[in-house]
Nucleic acid binder design. Structure first.
Lengths: 235, 235
DNA sequence: CGTACGACCTGCCGTCACGTCCGATTCAAG
DNA sequence: CTTGAATCGGACGTGACGGCAGGTCGTACG
Protein backbone atom coordinates (compact mmCIF):
# COMPACT_ATOMS: atom_id res chain seq x y z
CA UNK A 1 0.00 0.00 0.00
CA UNK A 2 1.31 3.41 -0.99
CA UNK A 3 0.51 7.01 -0.38
CA UNK A 4 -0.49 9.27 -3.22
CA UNK A 5 2.94 10.88 -3.27
CA UNK A 6 4.79 7.58 -3.58
CA UNK A 7 2.53 6.40 -6.37
CA UNK A 8 2.91 9.66 -8.23
CA UNK A 9 6.68 9.63 -7.97
CA UNK A 10 7.02 6.03 -9.03
CA UNK A 11 4.73 6.26 -12.04
CA UNK A 12 5.87 9.67 -13.21
CA UNK A 13 2.42 11.13 -12.74
CA UNK A 14 1.59 13.97 -10.40
CA UNK A 15 -0.31 14.04 -7.16
CA UNK A 16 -2.72 16.43 -8.76
CA UNK A 17 -3.44 14.05 -11.64
CA UNK A 18 -4.11 11.17 -9.25
CA UNK A 19 -6.53 13.30 -7.26
CA UNK A 20 -8.18 14.24 -10.54
CA UNK A 21 -8.56 10.58 -11.51
CA UNK A 22 -10.07 9.92 -8.11
CA UNK A 23 -12.47 12.82 -8.48
CA UNK A 24 -13.81 11.70 -11.85
CA UNK A 25 -13.93 8.10 -10.67
CA UNK A 26 -11.31 6.81 -13.06
CA UNK A 27 -8.94 5.55 -10.39
CA UNK A 28 -10.24 5.25 -6.85
CA UNK A 29 -7.74 4.34 -4.14
CA UNK A 30 -8.37 0.95 -2.58
CA UNK A 31 -8.97 2.58 0.78
CA UNK A 32 -8.69 5.70 2.84
CA UNK A 33 -6.98 6.06 6.19
CA UNK A 34 -8.84 7.45 9.19
CA UNK A 35 -7.63 10.89 8.23
CA UNK A 36 -8.90 10.62 4.70
CA UNK A 37 -5.49 9.98 3.16
CA UNK A 38 -5.61 7.91 -0.01
CA UNK A 39 -4.06 4.43 0.12
CA UNK A 40 -3.29 2.75 -3.19
CA UNK A 41 -2.81 -0.99 -3.60
CA UNK A 42 -1.30 -3.21 -6.30
CA UNK A 43 -4.57 -3.32 -8.24
CA UNK A 44 -4.62 0.44 -8.36
CA UNK A 45 -1.05 0.40 -9.62
CA UNK A 46 -1.92 -1.94 -12.46
CA UNK A 47 -4.93 0.13 -13.37
CA UNK A 48 -2.82 3.24 -13.36
CA UNK A 49 -0.32 1.62 -15.70
CA UNK A 50 -3.11 0.83 -18.12
CA UNK A 51 -4.47 4.32 -17.88
CA UNK A 52 -1.08 5.80 -18.62
CA UNK A 53 -0.51 3.46 -21.54
CA UNK A 54 -3.82 4.41 -23.10
CA UNK A 55 -3.12 8.06 -22.50
CA UNK A 56 0.13 7.84 -24.44
CA UNK A 57 -2.06 6.86 -27.36
CA UNK A 58 -3.93 10.11 -26.95
CA UNK A 59 -7.21 8.67 -25.70
CA UNK A 60 -9.38 10.88 -23.54
CA UNK A 61 -10.01 9.95 -19.94
CA UNK A 62 -13.63 9.24 -20.80
CA UNK A 63 -12.59 6.81 -23.50
CA UNK A 64 -10.10 5.20 -21.16
CA UNK A 65 -12.80 4.72 -18.54
CA UNK A 66 -15.09 2.96 -21.01
CA UNK A 67 -12.25 0.86 -22.33
CA UNK A 68 -11.24 -0.30 -18.87
CA UNK A 69 -14.82 -1.08 -17.89
CA UNK A 70 -15.58 -2.98 -21.10
CA UNK A 71 -12.35 -4.48 -22.41
CA UNK A 72 -14.28 -6.01 -25.29
CA UNK A 73 -14.85 -2.56 -26.74
CA UNK A 74 -11.14 -1.89 -26.84
CA UNK A 75 -10.57 -3.06 -30.37
CA UNK A 76 -13.28 -0.88 -31.80
CA UNK A 77 -12.20 2.08 -29.73
CA UNK A 78 -8.58 1.81 -30.71
CA UNK A 79 -9.51 1.38 -34.35
CA UNK A 80 -11.68 4.48 -34.15
CA UNK A 81 -8.87 6.36 -32.51
CA UNK A 82 -6.49 5.22 -35.21
CA UNK A 83 -8.86 6.56 -37.84
CA UNK A 84 -9.09 9.86 -36.01
CA UNK A 85 -5.32 10.06 -35.88
CA UNK A 86 -5.12 9.44 -39.60
CA UNK A 87 -7.61 12.19 -40.30
CA UNK A 88 -5.68 14.56 -38.09
CA UNK A 89 -2.47 13.58 -39.87
CA UNK A 90 -3.80 14.50 -43.28
CA UNK A 91 -5.18 17.76 -41.92
CA UNK A 92 -1.76 18.65 -40.60
CA UNK A 93 -0.17 17.61 -43.87
CA UNK A 94 -2.46 19.95 -45.79
CA UNK A 95 -1.65 22.79 -43.43
CA UNK A 96 2.05 22.12 -43.80
CA UNK A 97 2.01 22.22 -47.58
CA UNK A 98 0.04 25.46 -47.50
CA UNK A 99 2.38 27.04 -45.01
CA UNK A 100 5.55 25.98 -46.78
CA UNK A 101 4.19 27.23 -50.05
CA UNK A 102 3.36 30.55 -48.45
CA UNK A 103 6.74 30.84 -46.79
CA UNK A 104 8.67 29.78 -49.87
CA UNK A 105 8.12 33.19 -51.41
CA UNK A 106 9.75 35.34 -48.77
CA UNK A 107 7.70 38.49 -49.12
CA UNK A 108 6.84 39.25 -45.51
CA UNK A 109 4.85 42.38 -46.28
CA UNK A 110 2.87 40.48 -48.85
CA UNK A 111 1.70 37.87 -46.37
CA UNK A 112 -1.17 39.89 -45.09
CA UNK A 113 -2.58 40.54 -48.51
CA UNK A 114 -2.11 36.95 -49.53
CA UNK A 115 -3.82 35.80 -46.37
CA UNK A 116 -6.66 38.20 -46.94
CA UNK A 117 -7.15 36.81 -50.40
CA UNK A 118 -7.15 33.28 -49.13
CA UNK A 119 -9.91 34.14 -46.71
CA UNK A 120 -12.09 36.09 -49.06
CA UNK A 121 -14.82 34.14 -50.64
CA UNK A 122 -15.17 35.78 -53.97
CA UNK A 123 -12.20 37.26 -55.76
CA UNK A 124 -13.99 37.54 -59.08
CA UNK A 125 -16.12 40.62 -58.85
CA UNK A 126 -13.90 43.63 -59.51
CA UNK A 127 -11.40 43.82 -62.35
CA UNK A 128 -8.62 45.59 -60.42
CA UNK A 129 -8.68 42.85 -57.86
CA UNK A 130 -8.89 40.40 -60.73
CA UNK A 131 -5.50 41.52 -61.99
CA UNK A 132 -3.67 41.69 -58.70
CA UNK A 133 -5.21 38.45 -57.59
CA UNK A 134 -4.35 36.70 -60.82
CA UNK A 135 -0.71 37.48 -60.10
CA UNK A 136 -1.10 36.40 -56.49
CA UNK A 137 -2.76 33.21 -57.60
CA UNK A 138 0.24 32.35 -59.76
CA UNK A 139 2.39 33.24 -56.83
CA UNK A 140 0.64 31.08 -54.28
CA UNK A 141 0.08 27.97 -56.31
CA UNK A 142 -3.03 25.97 -57.03
CA UNK A 143 -3.67 24.33 -53.67
CA UNK A 144 -3.88 27.57 -51.75
CA UNK A 145 -6.24 28.99 -54.32
CA UNK A 146 -8.36 25.87 -54.24
CA UNK A 147 -8.64 26.24 -50.52
CA UNK A 148 -9.62 29.87 -50.78
CA UNK A 149 -12.37 29.14 -53.24
CA UNK A 150 -13.91 26.29 -51.32
CA UNK A 151 -16.42 28.34 -49.46
CA UNK A 152 -17.49 30.28 -52.51
CA UNK A 153 -17.86 27.08 -54.46
CA UNK A 154 -20.13 25.59 -51.88
CA UNK A 155 -22.47 28.49 -52.30
CA UNK A 156 -22.45 28.29 -56.08
CA UNK A 157 -22.95 24.52 -56.02
CA UNK A 158 -25.92 24.88 -53.74
CA UNK A 159 -27.49 27.49 -55.99
CA UNK A 160 -26.87 25.41 -59.12
CA UNK A 161 -28.56 22.53 -57.39
CA UNK A 162 -31.56 24.77 -56.82
CA UNK A 163 -31.59 25.67 -60.51
CA UNK A 164 -31.34 22.05 -61.62
CA UNK A 165 -34.07 20.79 -59.33
CA UNK A 166 -36.26 23.74 -60.23
CA UNK A 167 -36.50 24.84 -56.64
CA UNK A 168 -38.97 27.67 -56.21
CA UNK A 169 -37.29 31.10 -56.12
CA UNK A 170 -39.32 32.03 -53.08
CA UNK A 171 -38.32 28.95 -51.10
CA UNK A 172 -36.62 29.26 -47.77
CA UNK A 173 -33.41 27.65 -49.02
CA UNK A 174 -33.10 29.82 -52.11
CA UNK A 175 -33.65 32.98 -50.17
CA UNK A 176 -31.09 31.98 -47.56
CA UNK A 177 -28.48 31.24 -50.20
CA UNK A 178 -29.08 34.46 -52.05
CA UNK A 179 -29.04 36.36 -48.81
CA UNK A 180 -25.55 35.05 -48.21
CA UNK A 181 -24.58 35.82 -51.77
CA UNK A 182 -25.79 39.38 -51.38
CA UNK A 183 -24.18 39.80 -48.02
CA UNK A 184 -20.88 38.66 -49.45
CA UNK A 185 -21.17 41.02 -52.37
CA UNK A 186 -22.22 43.92 -50.21
CA UNK A 187 -19.38 43.38 -47.82
CA UNK A 188 -16.83 42.86 -50.52
CA UNK A 189 -17.63 46.14 -52.20
CA UNK A 190 -17.35 48.19 -49.12
CA UNK A 191 -17.41 51.33 -51.22
CA UNK A 192 -20.93 52.59 -50.67
CA UNK A 193 -24.01 52.95 -52.80
CA UNK A 194 -24.14 51.75 -56.36
CA UNK A 195 -21.11 49.48 -56.24
CA UNK A 196 -23.26 46.43 -55.91
CA UNK A 197 -25.17 47.15 -59.07
CA UNK A 198 -21.94 48.00 -60.88
CA UNK A 199 -20.39 44.75 -59.76
CA UNK A 200 -23.41 42.81 -60.94
CA UNK A 201 -23.19 44.44 -64.35
CA UNK A 202 -19.50 43.75 -64.50
CA UNK A 203 -20.13 40.15 -63.58
CA UNK A 204 -22.72 39.77 -66.33
CA UNK A 205 -20.33 41.19 -68.92
CA UNK A 206 -17.27 39.23 -67.90
CA UNK A 207 -18.92 36.00 -66.89
CA UNK A 208 -17.52 34.13 -69.91
CA UNK A 209 -13.96 35.06 -69.19
CA UNK A 210 -14.32 34.52 -65.49
CA UNK A 211 -16.09 31.22 -65.69
CA UNK A 212 -13.36 29.96 -68.00
CA UNK A 213 -11.30 29.64 -64.87
CA UNK A 214 -14.16 28.24 -62.85
CA UNK A 215 -15.32 24.64 -62.67
CA UNK A 216 -18.76 25.55 -64.00
CA UNK A 217 -19.81 26.39 -67.54
CA UNK A 218 -20.66 29.96 -68.58
CA UNK A 219 -24.17 28.78 -69.43
CA UNK A 220 -24.65 27.40 -65.96
CA UNK A 221 -23.40 30.62 -64.48
CA UNK A 222 -25.77 32.69 -66.60
CA UNK A 223 -28.66 30.55 -65.50
CA UNK A 224 -27.51 30.94 -61.96
CA UNK A 225 -27.38 34.72 -62.20
CA UNK A 226 -30.86 34.76 -63.71
CA UNK A 227 -32.11 32.56 -60.91
CA UNK A 228 -30.58 34.78 -58.29
CA UNK A 229 -32.27 37.76 -59.87
CA UNK A 230 -35.62 35.99 -59.75
CA UNK A 231 -35.08 35.14 -56.09
CA UNK A 232 -34.32 38.77 -55.35
CA UNK A 233 -37.52 39.90 -57.08
CA UNK A 234 -39.64 37.35 -55.26
CA UNK A 235 -38.09 38.18 -51.89
CA UNK B 1 -21.05 49.77 -41.72
CA UNK B 2 -22.58 46.48 -40.63
CA UNK B 3 -24.13 44.98 -37.57
CA UNK B 4 -22.55 42.05 -35.85
CA UNK B 5 -25.06 39.65 -37.33
CA UNK B 6 -24.44 40.76 -40.89
CA UNK B 7 -20.70 40.49 -40.46
CA UNK B 8 -21.00 37.07 -38.91
CA UNK B 9 -23.22 35.77 -41.68
CA UNK B 10 -21.07 37.15 -44.47
CA UNK B 11 -17.77 35.85 -43.09
CA UNK B 12 -19.07 32.50 -41.92
CA UNK B 13 -18.17 33.27 -38.34
CA UNK B 14 -20.62 33.47 -35.47
CA UNK B 15 -21.92 36.37 -33.49
CA UNK B 16 -20.47 34.81 -30.38
CA UNK B 17 -17.00 34.59 -31.91
CA UNK B 18 -17.08 38.25 -32.89
CA UNK B 19 -18.13 39.25 -29.40
CA UNK B 20 -15.29 37.12 -28.08
CA UNK B 21 -12.79 38.85 -30.37
CA UNK B 22 -14.11 42.16 -29.14
CA UNK B 23 -13.82 41.11 -25.53
CA UNK B 24 -10.18 40.05 -25.82
CA UNK B 25 -9.37 43.10 -27.91
CA UNK B 26 -8.53 41.19 -31.06
CA UNK B 27 -11.20 42.83 -33.20
CA UNK B 28 -12.89 45.95 -31.88
CA UNK B 29 -15.78 47.36 -33.90
CA UNK B 30 -15.07 50.76 -35.42
CA UNK B 31 -17.85 52.26 -33.36
CA UNK B 32 -20.83 51.64 -31.17
CA UNK B 33 -24.31 53.04 -31.59
CA UNK B 34 -25.90 55.04 -28.81
CA UNK B 35 -27.38 51.87 -27.46
CA UNK B 36 -24.12 49.98 -27.44
CA UNK B 37 -24.68 47.96 -30.60
CA UNK B 38 -21.48 47.15 -32.45
CA UNK B 39 -20.90 48.74 -35.86
CA UNK B 40 -18.21 47.20 -38.05
CA UNK B 41 -16.51 49.05 -40.91
CA UNK B 42 -14.44 47.95 -43.92
CA UNK B 43 -11.21 47.99 -41.89
CA UNK B 44 -12.75 45.61 -39.40
CA UNK B 45 -13.77 43.37 -42.26
CA UNK B 46 -10.24 43.21 -43.63
CA UNK B 47 -8.84 42.53 -40.19
CA UNK B 48 -11.39 39.76 -39.71
CA UNK B 49 -10.36 38.16 -42.99
CA UNK B 50 -6.77 38.11 -41.82
CA UNK B 51 -7.74 36.68 -38.49
CA UNK B 52 -9.70 33.91 -40.12
CA UNK B 53 -6.91 33.11 -42.55
CA UNK B 54 -4.39 32.80 -39.74
CA UNK B 55 -6.81 30.68 -37.76
CA UNK B 56 -7.10 28.18 -40.58
CA UNK B 57 -3.40 27.66 -40.09
CA UNK B 58 -4.08 26.72 -36.50
CA UNK B 59 -2.56 29.77 -34.85
CA UNK B 60 -3.88 30.78 -31.46
CA UNK B 61 -5.70 34.06 -31.04
CA UNK B 62 -2.79 35.35 -28.99
CA UNK B 63 -0.37 34.57 -31.79
CA UNK B 64 -2.69 36.17 -34.30
CA UNK B 65 -2.89 39.32 -32.22
CA UNK B 66 0.90 39.65 -32.09
CA UNK B 67 1.21 38.88 -35.77
CA UNK B 68 -1.31 41.54 -36.72
CA UNK B 69 0.28 44.13 -34.46
CA UNK B 70 3.80 43.44 -35.69
CA UNK B 71 3.63 42.14 -39.25
CA UNK B 72 7.41 41.90 -39.31
CA UNK B 73 7.28 39.04 -36.84
CA UNK B 74 5.00 37.06 -39.12
CA UNK B 75 7.73 35.18 -40.91
CA UNK B 76 9.30 33.96 -37.70
CA UNK B 77 5.92 33.10 -36.21
CA UNK B 78 4.76 31.14 -39.21
CA UNK B 79 8.07 29.31 -39.39
CA UNK B 80 7.77 28.43 -35.72
CA UNK B 81 4.24 27.24 -36.29
CA UNK B 82 5.37 25.16 -39.22
CA UNK B 83 8.01 23.52 -37.03
CA UNK B 84 5.39 22.83 -34.37
CA UNK B 85 3.15 21.26 -36.99
CA UNK B 86 6.00 19.06 -38.17
CA UNK B 87 6.70 17.90 -34.63
CA UNK B 88 3.04 17.13 -34.12
CA UNK B 89 3.00 15.23 -37.41
CA UNK B 90 5.85 12.95 -36.39
CA UNK B 91 4.25 12.41 -32.99
CA UNK B 92 1.07 11.30 -34.67
CA UNK B 93 3.01 9.11 -37.05
CA UNK B 94 4.71 7.35 -34.14
CA UNK B 95 1.37 6.82 -32.43
CA UNK B 96 -0.10 5.44 -35.62
CA UNK B 97 2.64 2.88 -36.13
CA UNK B 98 2.34 1.80 -32.51
CA UNK B 99 -1.42 1.47 -32.71
CA UNK B 100 -1.42 -0.39 -36.01
CA UNK B 101 1.22 -2.77 -34.70
CA UNK B 102 -0.83 -3.37 -31.58
CA UNK B 103 -4.02 -3.90 -33.56
CA UNK B 104 -2.38 -6.15 -36.13
CA UNK B 105 -2.28 -9.00 -33.65
CA UNK B 106 -5.96 -9.26 -32.91
CA UNK B 107 -5.82 -10.52 -29.35
CA UNK B 108 -8.30 -8.25 -27.62
CA UNK B 109 -7.88 -9.79 -24.19
CA UNK B 110 -4.15 -9.48 -24.48
CA UNK B 111 -4.28 -5.76 -25.03
CA UNK B 112 -4.47 -4.86 -21.40
CA UNK B 113 -1.45 -6.89 -20.47
CA UNK B 114 0.51 -5.59 -23.42
CA UNK B 115 -0.44 -2.06 -22.50
CA UNK B 116 0.57 -2.63 -18.93
CA UNK B 117 3.95 -3.81 -20.04
CA UNK B 118 4.40 -0.84 -22.28
CA UNK B 119 3.76 1.48 -19.38
CA UNK B 120 5.93 -0.24 -16.86
CA UNK B 121 9.30 1.25 -16.49
CA UNK B 122 11.48 -1.70 -15.66
CA UNK B 123 10.74 -5.11 -17.09
CA UNK B 124 14.11 -6.51 -16.10
CA UNK B 125 13.93 -7.27 -12.43
CA UNK B 126 12.12 -10.58 -12.01
CA UNK B 127 12.87 -13.68 -14.11
CA UNK B 128 9.26 -14.82 -14.49
CA UNK B 129 8.34 -11.48 -15.95
CA UNK B 130 11.53 -11.70 -17.93
CA UNK B 131 10.25 -14.76 -19.75
CA UNK B 132 6.71 -13.67 -20.38
CA UNK B 133 7.87 -10.26 -21.39
CA UNK B 134 10.49 -11.65 -23.74
CA UNK B 135 7.67 -13.35 -25.63
CA UNK B 136 5.56 -10.22 -25.54
CA UNK B 137 8.45 -8.20 -26.76
CA UNK B 138 8.76 -10.41 -29.83
CA UNK B 139 5.03 -10.07 -30.26
CA UNK B 140 4.89 -6.31 -30.09
CA UNK B 141 7.88 -5.46 -32.19
CA UNK B 142 10.89 -3.31 -31.51
CA UNK B 143 9.34 0.15 -31.63
CA UNK B 144 6.78 -0.52 -28.94
CA UNK B 145 9.46 -1.94 -26.70
CA UNK B 146 11.71 1.00 -27.34
CA UNK B 147 8.91 3.27 -26.31
CA UNK B 148 8.29 1.33 -23.13
CA UNK B 149 11.89 1.51 -22.10
CA UNK B 150 12.31 5.21 -22.69
CA UNK B 151 11.48 6.29 -19.20
CA UNK B 152 13.66 3.68 -17.60
CA UNK B 153 16.49 4.64 -19.87
CA UNK B 154 16.31 8.24 -18.89
CA UNK B 155 16.83 7.27 -15.30
CA UNK B 156 19.79 5.03 -16.08
CA UNK B 157 21.36 7.63 -18.32
CA UNK B 158 21.10 10.24 -15.61
CA UNK B 159 22.72 7.94 -13.09
CA UNK B 160 25.51 6.99 -15.49
CA UNK B 161 26.15 10.66 -16.02
CA UNK B 162 26.53 11.01 -12.28
CA UNK B 163 29.02 8.15 -12.25
CA UNK B 164 31.04 9.60 -15.12
CA UNK B 165 31.21 13.09 -13.71
CA UNK B 166 32.04 11.71 -10.29
CA UNK B 167 29.03 13.39 -8.75
CA UNK B 168 29.04 13.04 -4.96
CA UNK B 169 26.83 10.15 -3.77
CA UNK B 170 25.27 12.43 -1.17
CA UNK B 171 24.34 15.13 -3.67
CA UNK B 172 20.76 16.22 -4.08
CA UNK B 173 20.56 14.95 -7.64
CA UNK B 174 21.97 11.52 -6.90
CA UNK B 175 19.64 11.01 -3.98
CA UNK B 176 16.64 12.09 -6.02
CA UNK B 177 17.50 9.68 -8.81
CA UNK B 178 18.07 6.77 -6.47
CA UNK B 179 14.89 7.61 -4.61
CA UNK B 180 13.02 7.18 -7.88
CA UNK B 181 14.93 4.00 -8.64
CA UNK B 182 13.99 2.59 -5.26
CA UNK B 183 10.42 3.72 -5.53
CA UNK B 184 10.12 2.01 -8.88
CA UNK B 185 11.61 -1.18 -7.54
CA UNK B 186 9.46 -1.12 -4.44
CA UNK B 187 6.29 -0.60 -6.43
CA UNK B 188 7.16 -3.15 -9.05
CA UNK B 189 7.67 -5.87 -6.47
CA UNK B 190 4.45 -5.27 -4.74
CA UNK B 191 4.92 -8.50 -2.83
CA UNK B 192 5.91 -7.28 0.60
CA UNK B 193 9.10 -7.39 2.63
CA UNK B 194 12.28 -8.92 1.33
CA UNK B 195 11.37 -8.85 -2.35
CA UNK B 196 13.37 -5.75 -2.92
CA UNK B 197 16.55 -7.28 -1.60
CA UNK B 198 15.88 -10.47 -3.57
CA UNK B 199 15.37 -8.46 -6.70
CA UNK B 200 18.59 -6.61 -6.13
CA UNK B 201 20.50 -9.85 -5.73
CA UNK B 202 18.89 -11.25 -8.84
CA UNK B 203 19.83 -8.13 -10.73
CA UNK B 204 23.44 -8.40 -9.61
CA UNK B 205 23.61 -12.03 -10.74
CA UNK B 206 21.91 -11.58 -14.08
CA UNK B 207 23.22 -8.18 -14.98
CA UNK B 208 25.47 -9.58 -17.73
CA UNK B 209 22.66 -11.34 -19.48
CA UNK B 210 20.24 -8.50 -19.02
CA UNK B 211 22.57 -5.77 -20.09
CA UNK B 212 23.32 -7.73 -23.24
CA UNK B 213 19.94 -6.52 -24.40
CA UNK B 214 20.47 -3.03 -23.05
CA UNK B 215 22.27 -0.15 -24.71
CA UNK B 216 24.81 0.06 -21.89
CA UNK B 217 27.77 -2.19 -21.17
CA UNK B 218 27.74 -4.65 -18.28
CA UNK B 219 30.70 -2.82 -16.78
CA UNK B 220 28.80 0.43 -16.81
CA UNK B 221 25.83 -1.25 -15.20
CA UNK B 222 28.00 -2.76 -12.46
CA UNK B 223 29.49 0.64 -11.75
CA UNK B 224 26.01 2.05 -11.70
CA UNK B 225 24.77 -0.52 -9.21
CA UNK B 226 27.79 0.11 -6.99
CA UNK B 227 27.12 3.84 -7.18
CA UNK B 228 23.50 3.38 -6.28
CA UNK B 229 24.55 1.32 -3.28
CA UNK B 230 26.89 4.08 -2.14
CA UNK B 231 24.14 6.64 -2.52
CA UNK B 232 21.87 4.48 -0.39
CA UNK B 233 24.50 4.18 2.34
CA UNK B 234 25.20 7.90 2.37
CA UNK B 235 21.53 8.81 2.42
C1' DC C 1 6.77 21.20 25.23
C1' DG C 2 6.38 24.18 21.43
C1' DT C 3 7.44 24.57 16.74
C1' DA C 4 8.87 24.04 12.20
C1' DC C 5 8.51 21.14 8.21
C1' DG C 6 6.74 17.98 5.02
C1' DA C 7 2.88 15.46 3.17
C1' DC C 8 -1.75 15.23 2.85
C1' DC C 9 -6.67 17.03 2.51
C1' DT C 10 -10.70 19.92 0.12
C1' DG C 11 -12.04 23.50 -2.77
C1' DC C 12 -11.72 27.17 -6.01
C1' DC C 13 -9.81 29.70 -10.08
C1' DG C 14 -7.42 29.59 -14.60
C1' DT C 15 -6.36 27.62 -19.04
C1' DC C 16 -8.52 28.12 -24.81
C1' DA C 17 -11.93 29.45 -28.07
C1' DC C 18 -15.69 29.81 -28.10
C1' DG C 19 -21.16 27.32 -27.58
C1' DT C 20 -25.16 27.74 -25.05
C1' DC C 21 -28.50 29.76 -22.23
C1' DC C 22 -30.33 33.75 -19.67
C1' DG C 23 -33.02 38.07 -18.88
C1' DA C 24 -33.05 42.72 -20.47
C1' DT C 25 -33.08 46.02 -24.00
C1' DT C 26 -33.64 47.72 -28.67
C1' DC C 27 -34.84 47.64 -33.61
C1' DA C 28 -37.87 47.12 -37.76
C1' DA C 29 -42.25 45.96 -39.46
C1' DG C 30 -47.20 45.65 -39.39
C1' DC D 1 -48.87 49.46 -30.00
C1' DT D 2 -47.54 45.05 -30.41
C1' DT D 3 -44.81 41.40 -31.96
C1' DG D 4 -40.76 39.02 -33.37
C1' DA D 5 -36.01 39.36 -34.48
C1' DA D 6 -31.64 41.12 -33.23
C1' DT D 7 -28.58 42.73 -29.85
C1' DC D 8 -26.60 43.36 -25.30
C1' DG D 9 -23.78 41.68 -21.16
C1' DG D 10 -23.08 37.96 -17.94
C1' DA D 11 -22.67 33.33 -16.44
C1' DC D 12 -21.66 28.49 -16.97
C1' DG D 13 -19.61 24.48 -19.61
C1' DT D 14 -15.99 22.14 -22.24
C1' DG D 15 -10.75 18.61 -20.96
C1' DA D 16 -7.13 17.53 -18.14
C1' DC D 17 -5.23 19.00 -15.14
C1' DG D 18 -1.76 23.24 -12.67
C1' DG D 19 -1.55 26.26 -9.03
C1' DC D 20 -2.87 28.35 -4.92
C1' DA D 21 -5.22 28.96 -0.34
C1' DG D 22 -6.19 27.39 4.08
C1' DG D 23 -6.58 23.56 7.15
C1' DT D 24 -5.05 18.92 9.29
C1' DC D 25 -1.79 15.42 10.59
C1' DG D 26 2.60 13.26 12.01
C1' DT D 27 7.29 13.64 13.07
C1' DA D 28 11.86 15.44 14.12
C1' DC D 29 14.36 18.88 16.56
C1' DG D 30 15.65 22.48 19.91
Amino acid sequence: MWTIGQLAQATRTTVRALRHYDQIGLLRPTERTQNGHRRYGPDDLRRLYRIRALRTFGLSLDEIATALEAPASMTALLHAHLAALSRRASEIEALRTQLTRLLDHDDPTGYLKALEMMAMLDPYLTPEQQDSLAARREHLGPEAVENAKTEWRTLVESLLECVRTGRAPDSEEARALVARWDAIGALFHAGGTGTEAAARRMWAENSEEISARLPWSADDMRELVAYVTRVRENG
